[in-house]
Design a protein around this nucleic acid. Sequence first.
DNA 1: AACGCTAATCTAAACGTTTCGATCATGTCA
DNA 2: TGACATGATCGAAACGTTTAGATTAGCGTT
Lengths: 339, 339
Amino acid sequence: MLHVAEAARVSVATVSALINGTATVSPELSQRIEQAIRDIGYKRNAIARSLKMGTTRTIGLTVPHITNPFFTDVVSVIQQAFDRAGYAVMLCCTDEDLNTQDDQIRLLLDRMVDGLIVARVGDGAILKRIVDDANVPVVLLDRICKGIDTDAVVLDNQRAVFDAITYLINLGHRRIGYITGTSDISPMHDRMAGYREALHAAGLPIAEELIRFGNFHEIDGYNETMQMLSSHDRPSAIFSANNPMVIGTMKAIRDIGLSCPEDISVACFDDFPWSDVFQPQLTTVAQPVQAIGEQAANLLLDRLAGNRDAPPRKLLLKGRLMIRNSCRPLGAIAQSVSA
Amino acid sequence: MLHVAEAARVSVATVSALINGTATVSPELSQRIEQAIRDIGYKRNAIARSLKMGTTRTIGLTVPHITNPFFTDVVSVIQQAFDRAGYAVMLCCTDEDLNTQDDQIRLLLDRMVDGLIVARVGDGAILKRIVDDANVPVVLLDRICKGIDTDAVVLDNQRAVFDAITYLINLGHRRIGYITGTSDISPMHDRMAGYREALHAAGLPIAEELIRFGNFHEIDGYNETMQMLSSHDRPSAIFSANNPMVIGTMKAIRDIGLSCPEDISVACFDDFPWSDVFQPQLTTVAQPVQAIGEQAANLLLDRLAGNRDAPPRKLLLKGRLMIRNSCRPLGAIAQSVSA
DNA sequence: AACGCTAATCTAAACGTTTCGATCATGTCA
DNA sequence: TGACATGATCGAAACGTTTAGATTAGCGTT
């Protein structure tokens, strides 16, 4: 900018005024400056600008795993929204690890991001402290957090799983396996509540040996399914509370020599784009990823636009049960269907 | 930092020296400074630091679509690698659009990223200009670019498709449909060359009506497949040159009332994690995503570590044909197999 | 006691912007 | 003609660091 100013024989203040349109500059000087900018190939240094302005037009986004198709989609939507608004997004994947998450958030805050969208991991105490004293708007995504009272967009997880399990019950299933992630994050907690509520509403007992905890990965789904299916009193249906784990479930079913839905019915949380193309076509709970991403982006953009003091807004979106062919009717119900 | 210095009754230079370990500071002052840092809750402002140092410890990463599982995986690997190295990554999705890409790269360069990993889109002329006068190391990912002579890691696409098509030919297929993206990017060009080479090597004619161009999306795969299958002389196998389009192909096959592999064989480029769980299990060309991501990250990290003048390094990785059950033997070959 | 050496600390300039207030020419009005 | 508003331009400080070079204090030598 200094060089431009010299070349155009004006002060840097004038160059800045022209570039930002913050003051009128005469046509003559404008012309000289623009020429100089072209000649020199000048590009404004956004870092210097950020330092002076106190804003980076960059936001931080952390998710547990970008390879989980739910997060892939949401990240994609959020990225597009901020791109449109002229913001850059720094992406971090916490790998479902608390320390990684804390480090990454600190990294983002060091870099003076203007805002944060966080699908948090683990207990919120440290996150809360970090976020509190960095004075930056935060929106919680997918997972709310007890200590942190801020904007959030989440699914009505309990209701969604309630519907799914009730569907299985109505098909005649009585022993329904449930594979979940560690329940220290809200969706897992709420989904489990939906499971229990559905069984309870139908007057069915809750068999604790059918509730299995994994660590969100395919391998966990595989292991837990293997164990369940090896028991002599195996379930007739399995619901997986997340998407990567259901792949493991399907592999376990295959490896153990059973087939779905003939021998065992399967449903899971989170839809994927190819779910109605391959067999079996999985029955899933679909989240409105587009809406989730857009709402999260909008909440943050609204704060960034200056609306700092509005009370925290919590958005609760509804899931949708996508019924396909991976669950089959059982017993009397099967009879009446085939009759 | 000024506040810390005042609270500890030292100069800012001393504080800086302690924080960065660039000079020895006495135990006594160290203690006072550390105490002040804790009391005040001081965090270094990375923006100011970047301005002074001329480095942001941030890199830019642009891909066409993050929802394409190939790019999802590669992005994930790259993100992890830079995370380990203490770099942040700014992610942009160009949506396969040239102007979007140019805008985003400018955005990244404005923000003074230290380096760039680009899966480019369209013709490289503008990209070249942009990259030339920003003096930043660039590594090309998945797609090389005529004008730009820089580090790159790509697959041996021609060979990979040659192998896949040859496999189909050996199964007895003679009319093999080929669905590709616009061939102005290198992988599509090279894959097509592999297709033609394989047919040629087998002495088969090339039926131009079986070569269909889409725009990388599922819907394109759907439309092109529909057209191919509606012809009276339809192919016995279809190869899709990218992953999202094959979903469209499968949907078209389903909607038209055919089934795979009984009526039509299907194979495609890019593997996905669930490909051996659902039916049909697609035969695919798997890219070594882990290696691709790591190599790209390493090339860039090496440049960032100071190795600026080494000649451009081109890494050519090998694909792997994952044979599953979506392609069936035909004619005489089928006879001999079943005999 | 004077000297030089080392280690610890500080002063101040620099990075590239934005912006406040000052300056200055020009035209308007009484 | 003098006072004054207006519009264009500029000078300089500020944002929060890093760092080269200056300064100071402490110590061992001679």
